[in-house]
Amino acid sequence: MLNPVPFFHDFVENIHQVFFVYDPATNQVTFVNAAYERLLGGNRARVNEELPQLIDRLHPDDRPYLANCWRRWQRGRLEEKEIEFRLLAPDGTEQWLQLKPHHQQTGTEQHLLGGFLDVITGQKEYMANVDKFNAKKNATLEILSHDLAGPFIMLQQLAEYMGEQVGSLRNENLNEMIRIMQTTCKESVDLIRDFVDQEFLDSANVELKLERVDMVERMQQMMESYKQSESVVAKNFTLIAPQEPVYVNLDVNKFMQVLNNLVSNALKFTPDGGHITLTIAQEPSTVRFTVADDGIGIPQAQQAGLFDRFTKARRPGLRGEKTTGLGMSIIKTIVGLHRGRIWFESEEGKGSTFYIDLPLNMASQSNGQQA
């Protein structure tokens, strides 16, 4: 039987990722492959001497997160399959790294840590642009649906009025043209709303892809699109957020669609000139998001079943915007998948406020430790 050791040694030395083994008992890296020199610019023979310098280059925002991961990793309780973090170059540029960690118990009290480390700066920049485009696209769709639906609803109402006025003429051709106008307007409004609703439904049916995200930055990007449209949709938008980043472990595309859908509902039920405010605030172990409006509010009789699937609380917007009754149910499902909770306060004639609490670190929460 052939000895597989030379094969594995050759494989490890020639892969493009950094592969390493660390012994916590001696605080020493016992092995690192040649990729360490190619990707991180170090000298593998001096890796233990260079390790403090690498630690000094960790991005300040990532240090508390990595310290938490390190504590759980040493105990064999690390749930994350991938850990992403940043190193700072002397010129201040960021280098994104992805670690795939492994914990090996070698005895009753002995264990080794190791894994693969790869540079993913290009991938992160690409995905950041994709996420920014998606956020802008979703906000634009909501703005367009709100802006386009209004004229169609007005034409539909005008056609209904014309139909009442010309009914006495008994002109079948004229009545048929008015009926076509009414039907076309209604179908156009439904088509616009169906398209936006389907975007949300499609997103909800895909498995969560969790990553650590600065939600202040993402909400700022989303609100830019809405603020640019204030004169178009006749609403005032405000974002209340801390100056420093707020990092949360979540599926950023799905959760941004949750916020976007809540803003969409606020648009439907807030009269022209009204206000819609988004807030993000960090608590000791959670992050709270709120979407508030000063619109018509939710009738008391409809509040109990608001999050039910095909809820009876569904109702058309102030401009007749269509609703499937599925939106709030899907929102609650996505929040639940993030181990969060959602609730609301509303008073008829005074507006509504929706609250979402998410854990700062889902993996830490699941095994009883705070981030």
Rank of each mutant, 00 (worst) to 15 (best):
M1W: 11
I15A: 09
D23K: 08
P24Y: 08
A25I: 03
T26I: 08
Q28C: 04
V29F: 15
T30S: 06
F31E: 02
A34Y: 11
L39M: 11
G42V: 01
N43Y: 09
A45T: 10
A45L: 15
R46V: 01
N48L: 00
P52I: 14
L54K: 05
D56V: 14
R57W: 08
D62K: 04
R63M: 14
L66I: 12
N68K: 08
C69M: 14
K81A: 13
E82I: 13
E82F: 12
P90T: 07
Q105W: 10
G114S: 03
G115E: 01
L117V: 08
G122W: 06
V130L: 14
N134R: 14
A135G: 11
A139M: 07
L144R: 00
L144C: 07
S145C: 15
F152P: 00
I153G: 12
G163V: 05
G163K: 03
E164Q: 14
L169C: 07
N171L: 11
E172W: 09
N175G: 11
E176T: 14
C185G: 00
D190T: 02
L191I: 01
D194V: 12
V206P: 01
E207V: 14
E211S: 13
M215E: 06
M215N: 05
V216A: 06
M222V: 11
M222N: 01
Y226Q: 02
Q228C: 08
K235R: 13
T238M: 12
Q243E: 14
E244I: 03
V246W: 04
V248E: 00
F255R: 00
L259E: 03
N260I: 03
N260R: 00
L262D: 01
P271M: 08
D272C: 13
D272S: 15
T277H: 06
T277M: 11
T279N: 10
I280T: 04
S285H: 15
T286N: 13
T290M: 07
V291H: 01
A292S: 11
D293I: 08
G295E: 03
G295N: 06
I298F: 10
Q302C: 12
A304E: 12
A313M: 10
I331G: 01
E348I: 09
G351E: 04
Y355L: 05
L358N: 04
N361K: 09
A363I: 10
A363Y: 10
S364D: 09
G368M: 10
